[in-house]
Simulated scan of single mutants.
Amino acid sequence: MFYQPKDGHGLPHNPFNAIITPRPIGWISTRAGRGDNLAPYSFFNGIAYTPPQVMFASTARKDSLNNIEQSGVFAVNVVAHARREAMNLTSGSYPPGTDEFELAGIAKAECVTIPCPRVADAPAVLECRLGRILRLEGPDNHLVIGLVTGIHLRDDCIVGGRFDITRFQPLARCGYRDYAVVREVFEMARPDDG
């Protein structure tokens, strides 16, 4: 099968999200005039190492984007498999000003380097200062780039001096309504590892 997106795919469901999989989930927390907000974004990833930078894309103008424009900061909370139901609950469309931390029964803590809430028991949290927001092609697509100013690592996830993802089993988004969980990892040496 071949199709050009401008012509449509002819399938009952759009395969695009299922092709780019698995995708890490950035559980984005923000604070602005109407209060605290928490929402998952699966178009999320790290984009630079030095200085550390991340990005997430928002399709449509949502509370997260509005809050980041107002405050200039946000936090990326890593989603553990054990928090899948709470994460899913925070993905709903709620009226502006709804505190999804309260709605989903998630304990919050304050960030250190930015005025923003974070998921208190997240395996890792990246505190971010807004780098820029880019308007993307399409009716209402936005790319948010953040410069990481602080990193929280849950102590039980540090094993032998490494951040061990098997301790919390990260949740990933696949296509449609499908998710995946990382339970197995393996290591491969690069050809230039000495």
Rank of each mutant, 00 (worst) to 15 (best):
V119M: 09
G138C: 04
R167K: 10
A172P: 01
D99Y: 11
V125N: 13
L171I: 02
A124D: 08
H142W: 15
T113P: 01
I106M: 10
L153Q: 07
I114S: 08
C111S: 10
L147E: 08
A104W: 05
P95S: 10
G72E: 05
T166K: 12
L136V: 00
D121K: 07
L130C: 09
V112C: 04
G131S: 11
I133Y: 07
F163M: 04
L171W: 10
V112I: 13
L103D: 00
F168S: 05
G72W: 10
F101G: 11
A75F: 09
P123V: 04
P95D: 12
R129C: 01
A120K: 15
A109I: 04
V112P: 02
C111E: 02
I145S: 00
V159Y: 12
C111V: 05
A122K: 05
N66K: 11
V78N: 03
L65M: 06
Y94T: 05
Y94N: 10
V119W: 12
D156I: 00
L89V: 08
Y94A: 01
G97E: 14
G97Y: 13
E69L: 14
F101Q: 09
K108S: 15
N77W: 07
R162A: 10
R84P: 02
C157V: 03
E85K: 08
I151D: 03
